[in-house]
Design a protein around this nucleic acid. Structure first.
Length: 259
DNA sequence: ATGGTAGACCTTCTA
């Protein structure tokens, strides 16, 4: 069972790129972030033609997340609990009904820039809600994969130029502590279970030749419950996707669990 | 020190 996570930066602008990658990589499940459209404008049929079941939690222009699965999806949750007034579409979760089921959450954590604004406080508040929800999910003692764009650089080793991120919300001590607190509940970053080398990045900015200079950061992860971590078989970061035509600024990360 | 790019879309916001 292979589960991909990919911030596609507009599913409609990226459709040929995303379809080409899915046809080649053939993940069983894909978590998409930043679809940047409402549910009605999601190109559902294109993914159904590739054999995927589709569930979306969209929003006009910004954010938006989706789950694709070759297995049936049930127990769908749209949005994180804890704030009924939050209108940003950043979380969708479902039970993937494979022979050994896996609960999968697709996460698009707030960016939080610039510092000193309500955007950063929203990021930390959203993190707290995610932690509370993860605590509840872990009580189920299921195979669970919380996958997505966490918008956090966990350690200096996860940036080519950590100094460049000193004043960025992605590398603030509070952001990094919130990610650690989430993991301390009992979640394992699949990157740490695999043998990916330092310098395995998942995002390169479109600006200032970041890709050409390999000025990347690792901000896209799969966090696994103990039951899922026990099934861990491997992880692949699809760096080559950054060189496709009309690439996203993020690349897919694929985790394989034992069937 | 600044701006560099990309996407949605009503002109500026988000990243």
């Amino acid at each position: 069972m292979r589960i991909a996570t990919w911030n596609v930066n507009s599913v409609n602008a990226r459709l040929p790129t995303v379809l080409e990658w899915l046809e080649a990589a053939k993940p069983d499940v894909a978590c998409l972030q930043e679809i940047k459209c409402v549910d009605e404008k999601f190109p559902r049929e294109a993914f159904e033609s590739l054999g995927y079941n589709v569930e979306t939690h969209g929003q006009k222009s910004y954010n938006g997340v989706a789950l694709l699965s070759k297995y049936p999806l049930s127990d769908i949750r749209r949005g994180l609990p804890g704030d009924d007034r939050d209108e940003q579409a950043r979380y969708i979760e479902a039970l993937v009904e494979s022979p050994r089921p896996v609960r999968v959450g697709a996460i698009y954590l707030p960016n939080g820039n610039p510092l000193g604004t309500e955007k950063f406080t929203y990021k930390l508040a959203w993190f707290a809600r995610l932690q509370a929800h993860a605590r509840e999910l872990l009580k189920l003692e299921e195979s669970l994969a919380l996958c997505g764009d966490y918008n956090v650089i966990p350690t200096p080793a996860d940036a080519r130029n950590p100094e460049a991120w000193t004043d960025d919300a992605l590398f603030q001590p509070e952001s990094r502590a919130a990610l650690r607190a989430l993991k301390f509940l009992g979640l394992s970053d699949a990157h740490d279970l695999g043998n990916e080398p330092a310098g395995t990045y998942s995002f390169w900015d479109y600006q200032a030749g970041a890709w050409q200079r390999d000025h990347g950061i690792r901000i896209d992860f799969a966090l696994l419950s103990p039951q899922a971590a026990d099934r861990f078989r491997g992880i692949e970061t699809h760096r080559e996707a950054r060189d496709m035509d009309k690439p996203s600024d993020h690349v897919p990360v694929v985790v394989e669990l034992e069937d």
